[in-house]
């Protein structure tokens, strides 16, 4: 049974929340009720998979984001400028109204020197220094993805580069969008909310409630198999994957109804267990990802 067959107004509303917010932002910016904020996209120690995921955005897409929602002033992956000029563009934003989005973890090892993000006026700039300089000045700070939120895979044991989440090095609130990667809608929706209304309603760990309020398990299309005790014993089966190690019961995120890449699929629909990538503690607390022998801990 696919979640697409449901016609629940609650779910419908959730799915459209990002698109509705974004449409309002655009209207208000055009009507000059709102000024487009600057947006800095800062990559730190990670895989740069969140900007790749952001480019997968659809309604709004990336062109709409940079044309109608915000002035992106910096992105290591996309900036046309390079070298010192790029670093100037990064730090020139200080003093303006800007939102800081960070992907990747903050490496603390050797004062951050395991992650050099550029050279400004000949001096090496560490990820740690950049996030602290920008983070304290930004109107809002958004940690995009698992690594920026809580260290993620960059902080997996034995945490070779002493990685931590962005909030650990800032004396301020950081909006958390855990997930590996972050779904483009989670970021676009959060950004649109900030532009329109300011800080979105957050849970106790600073995750926007509009995306992170419910566990995967609560809305899983395979929930009836769980309730009836019908469990898959290998991948590729259409029943509940709890005994293969599925982390849906502990992972708060809206994957079952939002799905991925234009809403075509998601891990459980793909007959593989949720590995809890949007939950704190990923990856160490979520392993083993796939467990064929549930009676014996691996």
């Amino acid at each position: 049974m696919s979640s697409k067959n449901f016609k629940c107004p609650y779910q419908d509303n959730k799915l459209k929340s990002t698109a509705n917010l974004v449409a309002r932002v655009n209207n208000d910016i055009k009507a000059e009720k709102l000024v487009k904020p600057n947006l800095v996209w800062l990559e730190l120690n990670g895989c740069a998979g969140n900007i790749i995921s952001l480019l997968n955005g659809q309604n709004p897409d990336f062109q709409y984001l940079i044309t109608d929602m915000a002035n992106i002033t910096y992105s290591n992956s996309l900036l046309a400028a390079e070298g010192n000029q790029a670093m100037n563009e990064l730090f020139d934003v200080i003093g303006s109204n800007f939102i800081l989005a960070v992907e990747g973890a903050v490496s603390l090892k050797e004062d951050g020197r395991y992650n050099i993000i550029g050279r400004h006026n000949h001096e090496a700039v560490t990820g740690l220094e950049a996030v602290q300089r920008l983070g304290e000045q930004a109107a809002y700070v958004i940690a995009v993805g698992a690594c920026a939120s809580h260290g993620g895979i960059s902080a997996a044991r034995p945490n070779p580069t002493s990685c931590v989440g962005v909030h650990e090095v800032l004396q301020r609130k950081v909006i958390q969008l855990p997930g590996c990667p972050c779904h483009p809608d989670w970021f676009m929706g959060t950004l649109a909310y900030i532009i329109l209304y300011g800080e979105p309603p957050l849970d106790s760990r600073n995750r926007p409630l509009m995306f992170y309020s419910t566990t995967i398990h609560d809305r899983c299309p395979r929930r009836s198999y769980f309730d009836n005790g019908i469990f898959a014993t290998k991948l590729g089966e259409k029943t509940c994957m709890f005994k293969l190690g599925c982390r849906g019961p502990v992972t708060r995120i809206d994957c079952p109804i939002r799905q991925w890449n234009g809403h075509v699929n998601w891990p459980i629909e793909d007959d593989s267990p949720c590995i809890g990538c949007a939950q704190f503690g990923f990856p160490d607390a979520m392993e083993p990802f796939v467990n064929f022998n549930p009676t014996k801990g691996v």
Partner: peptide, 16 residues
């Protein structure tokens, strides 16, 4: 984006 969508049709999601 469509290339990632094809990937997700068989692979669940993309990236990762």
């Amino acid at each position: 984006r469509d290339a990632h969508q094809m990937l997700a049709i068989l692979g669940g999601k993309a990236p990762h």
